[in-house]
């Protein structure tokens, strides 16, 4: 239970374990069960992966294979501010890489990771459907358009 920082987490944990236990031997329910965990906790902790493997009778190597395959699943909780930088074709050709470099430098984070204080998490996405505004990123649900590396510190300063 070392992954649960507070009482509410503890409760959702217990409920998740009950939820998982309903699917004994049902290997075909793997992705659905992992979805539930991801949605409830914001990530899929290692001990619950092992639990899922045991109960659904899916090898742990495969459970982790699924989690590491799909970008939807994460191994760490997302930060208070979750940054999604688009590297789709339009954003890419209009300098998304430089924007990403600037963010990485500013918050000291590589894509897929969360800062130790839990404040920021960073991911790369491929097309947010706003190519006309490229390069573009979202922080939680807010969209930031026509980015330049120079604008990054000022934007991030709004999220404290």
């Amino acid at each position: 239970m070392e992954n649960s920082p507070c009482q509410c987490m503890e409760e959702s944990y217990q409920e998740l374990v009950k939820f998982i236990n309903q699917y004994e031997g049902e290997s075909e329910s793997l992705i659905m069960v992992l979805h539930k965990i991801q949605e409830t906790l914001g990530f899929v902790p290692v001990d619950l992966q092992v639990k899922v493997a045991d109960v659904l009778r899916v090898p742990i190597s495969k459970v982790f294979g699924v989690i590491s395959f799909y970008a939807f699943f994460t191994l760490k909780p997302k930060g208070k501010y979750h940054i999604s930088v688009c590297k789709g074709t339009a954003c890419f050709v209009r300098g998304a890489s430089k924007v990403l470099d600037a963010i990485e430098k500013k918050i000291g984070l590589v894509p897929g990771d969360t800062t130790n204080d839990g404040k920021y998490s960073l991911e790369i996405v491929y097309c947010l459907g706003a190519c006309g505004l490229s390069p573009v990123m979202t922080i939680n649900k807010e969209v930031h358009a026509r980015l330049t590396p120079q604008r990054i510190p000022e934007i991030l300063a709004e999220y404290t």
């Binding site: 290692v46 992966q49 742990i60 190597s61 495969k62 459970v63 982790f64 294979g65 590491s68 395959f69």
Partner: peptide
């Protein structure tokens, strides 16, 4: 089993 995807794919144990 296969872990990760695309160019990062490796055949490895869990985690």
């Amino acid at each position: 089993a296969p872990q990760e995807r695309g160019f990062k794919t490796t055949i490895a144990p869990a985690f």
